[in-house]
Amino acid sequence: MAGIFILLFYYFLGTLVAYLIGNFIPGSIMGMLLLFLSLVFKIIKPEQVRKSATFFLDNMMLFFIPLGVGLVASYALIGKFLTAITIASAVSTVLVLVVVALIAQKMEGKKDA
């Protein structure tokens, strides 16, 4: 239960910090960053959250379902732009693959040399 409390607390803290900086990034993401930093700086121990975090991480897919069912509500809009969605996503994915692979290989090689 302490683990659940820590996750809830960081979610709340993240939402609060996000609010204070004008909701520039979502509260849960701010919470994730704060939890990560707290673990790095040993403010909390990994054992304290391991069990609860693992539960949420293992069942993550379930948590998208209510959002995903929202597809029914925006069906028409998506259908209208299907070509744009497909082309933009496919081309951009290849670009990410190429850019990351080339930069990583080049920089790694430099350090080894």
Partner: peptide, 15 residues
């Protein structure tokens, strides 16, 4: 729960 699992990703990133 989705919000909580995003927060839990902070633990995964640390590991």
């Amino acid at each position: 729960m989705l919000g909580l699992s995003v927060v839990a990703l902070g633990y995964l990133l640390y590991e």
